[in-house]
């Protein structure tokens, strides 16, 4: 369990003065991850994306720790190289410190263009934590669909129109793809559960192997809501069971947040302009489908929890 009073004594590794939007969830995630990591030296690798461009506009960097970016699709591969260098230089005595490695990527850099390099790095068992700040579309280039974009959502490359209802496909389940890599630690969490996020980051960093955390990140611009609601929406994603907060530790599932009462998905959808068109009578079936998918996945997750803990 993390403790805010204690965390507040740690050095702040992400300074103000970065150019993320007001109320940006990526800033919250990056800060909280770094709070959790600040008790050890850490080297951060960033995939190209909102977080990277906004925090390091030359000649200003918001990062107070060693930070590296090279391209979009290769955060995990470059982090592999850094981690390999660490092993080599530790052997030769050029490095004597205990260092941790974190890679950040958005859903574009993680679910899509960076999936191959992520899969490779995980399979090779590099000791690193990969954090996906998942805002469910390519926000940096202006809200284009990704394979993480949920069914029905408006994006600029899967817009709704006279014949289309927004994205026509369900998102892929990347967290489960990572579980299938048989890595020691995979987790999902959301903005709004700071304690869960920070605890998970600490667990991941203490794991001697590859680890992955998928954090859903409301984006005020791409999702269409007021900036003060970023955390509220993160919480709603969990309270509706759309985005279960769970972890898989060495294959054992644990649902960390079980809402007492599952809120209907409408409560989440209606706050975001990207789903506005779904409230037209002719699109009702999409909302029904979204709710059915949530219910099925939530039930499946409980079965997994039960099965893997027998």
């Amino acid at each position: 369990m993390a403790n805010l009073k204690e965390l507040a004594t740690r050095p702040e590794l992400l300074s103000g003065g970065h150019r993320l939007c007001a109320g940006c969830g990526a800033g919250i995630i990056a800060r909280q991850v770094m709070m959790a990591a600040a008790d050890k030296p850490v080297v951060v690798t960033n995939a190209t994306g909102c977080l990277e461009v906004s925090t390091t506009i030359y000649p200003f960097s918001a990062w107070k720790t060693s930070w590296f970016h090279s391209a979009f699709e290769n955060a995990a591969a470059s982090c592999s190289g850094i981690e390999a260098a660490y092993k080599a230089l530790k052997r030769t005595g050029k490095v004597d410190k205990d260092i941790r490695f974190i890679a950040f990527g958005g859903d574009g850099g993680t679910y899509d263009i960076g999936l191959q390099s992520l899969s490779g790095a995980m399979e090779r068992r590099h000791r690193m934590l990969y954090v996906c700040y998942n805002n469910e579309a390519y926000m940096n280039t202006g809200i284009q669909r990704s394979s993480s974009t949920p069914l029905g959502a408006y994006t600029t490359t899967a817009p709704n129109g006279k014949v289309k209802k927004g994205k026509e496909q369900v998102r892929k389940n990347l967290t489960e793809i990572l579980v299938a890599h048989n890595i020691p630690y995979v987790a999902q969490t959301a903005i709004g559960y700071w304690n869960d996020l920070i605890t998970k980051v600490q667990k991941a960093l203490d794991t001697a192997g590859p680890t992955f955390i998928n954090v859903i990140q409301p984006c005020r611009l791409g999702w269409g809501y007021s900036p003060e609601d970023t955390v509220t929406l993160g919480r709603l994603a969990v309270e509706t069971c759309l985005w279960p907060v769970y972890e898989v530790v060495n294959g054992k599932y644990k649902i960390n947040v079980k809402p007492k009462e599952k809120k209907p998905i409408i409560e989440y959808l209606k706050l975001q302009s990207r789903f506005k068109h779904l409230f037209k009578p002719e699109n009702e079936s999409v909302i029904t489908e979204i709710q059915r998918n949530i219910d099925e996945h939530w039930a499946w997750l409980h079965l997994m929890e039960e099965d893997t803990n027998k």
Binding site: L4, K5, E6, L7, A8, T9, E12, L14, S15, G16, G17, H18, L20, C21, A22, G23, C24, G25, A26, G27, I28, R31, Q32, M35, I191, W194, S226, P227, E228, T230, V231
Partner: peptide
């Protein structure tokens, strides 16, 4: 402090002491 995206809540000795208006973007979170 923990939810501020802009590291703009000032904290001293683990106590909130005000805002860093140089960086706060006024999101209202």
């Amino acid at each position: 402090w923990v939810y501020c995206p802009d590291s703009s809540v000032k904290v001293k000795d683990s106590l909130m002491t005000g805002f860093d208006y140089k960086h706060c973007k006024g999101c209202g979170i």
